[in-house]
Design a protein around this nucleic acid. Structure first.
Lengths: 207, 207
DNA sequence: GTCTATACTTTGATAGAC
DNA sequence: GTCTATCAAAGTATAGAC
């Protein structure tokens, strides 16, 4: 009986197309991360993925859409990192440090070149370009996340704490894309000192 | 008597070609800074500059060479910033803070989009590309400059001080390219606190 | 001889057709 | 899934102005 597709019965497994879109996006993500968006052609993605041109263009209207989907996925990965950091530590101060630590782990992985969103942002400076917009939205969201986390600490100026942690994360991504893994430990120690200093006014929240 | 060129005497000034190369590089710098390297075509530079295609290609063998010249110029501009910071403040600690402040001023200028070298670095991820190499050399040099300056302070761990200032500068460039001028003041205050904290072990060097 | 302007060649990428 | 149209950009060559 097999599968039903677009209203018609299909005999034999043929192409299950279970996750065509996902596979393409997976391939594109790998290539974009490694070589940058501009340097990767659609044909290259098609070759690596083993899919046909039709399939790709049926899933993504054009390269811009594919890039946007890639960036959204990266933005989702960031949320996973944030969630992981929140789960791995118990106080908001320690969670901020843990977040920096986890970014450091990512940055230290060989073959990585910093933050995909920040790199793509640099590749598309035009304000009206969708890739630029999606990246920008991401950064605004990150800042909001950090501010909310910082507000839960005892820091008398949570905005300043959040901004400083964001500086460290931005610096770590840049640093990592330039110098590789060195810098990750520096960043964690830096973040620890910052959290300690910013929350030392009130000892309510441990560390 | 005019000039002697390639062994033959030339009567009349004709076209002195005083600064053809400079004018081209100037135009390219402006366009690259604004739109990014990939987005700017050679024809666009030629049009904006008002020079002929021959002249450009006689001065720069290809786009890669032009980009390299652009990056070297940006790297020289950085040295000017460092020299300015050294001249504007009297102690090494204050000079580090002043450096952050001057970067903040640059980042805050409207129409700026972060650090040209870091942006171009993100545009050329391939290790063997000359633009990548020149950028990398620059960053290594910056780190060295910061370490030397930090060594002059009373900080017991000057390497850590230098690394933290570099994080702040990297973060400031990223932050500035994303959020514009806000962040510049944050960065200066951050740098002040870091210098104070790192040099507080010995009170020898004021601040 | 040095510059501008333009025509041409080649390459590579997006995207659509079948 | 291959083949092809279209387009843009790099680079070369040529013609012509001063």
């Amino acid at each position: 009986m097999w599968t039903i597709r677009s209203g018609t019965m299909v005999g034999m497994p043929r192409k299950p197309t279970p996750d065509a879109r996902e596979r393409i996006l997976e391939t594109a993500t790998r290539l974009f991360n490694r070589y940058g968006v501009h340097a990767v052609g659609m044909q290259q993605i098609i070759d690596e993925c083993g899919c046909g041109k039709n399939l790709l263009y049926s899933q993504f209207a054009g390269k811009d859409e594919l890039v946007v989907a890639y960036l959204r996925r990266c933005s989702g990965d960031w949320d996973t990192i944030v969630a992981g950091a929140k789960a791995a530590a118990d106080g908001p101060g320690r969670q901020l440090v843990e977040l920096v630590r986890e970014v450091g782990v990512r940055v230290s992985e060989p073959g990585t070149r910093g933050c995909p969103l920040r790199n793509t942002f640099a590749e598309f400076p035009e304000r009206e370009h969708p890739a630029h917009r999606v990246s920008m939205d991401h950064f605004v969201r990150v800042r909001t996340q950090l501010r909310e986390l910082a507000k839960e600490t005892s820091a008398p100026e949570p905005g300043r704490l959040a901004d400083r942690i964001m500086f460290i994360i931005d610096g770590l991504y840049t640093n990592g894309s330039i110098f590789g893994d060195e810098g990750a430990k520096t960043a964690v120690a830096f973040a620890e000192d910052v959290v300690r200093a910013e929350t030392s006014a009130k000892p309510a929240e441990g560390r």
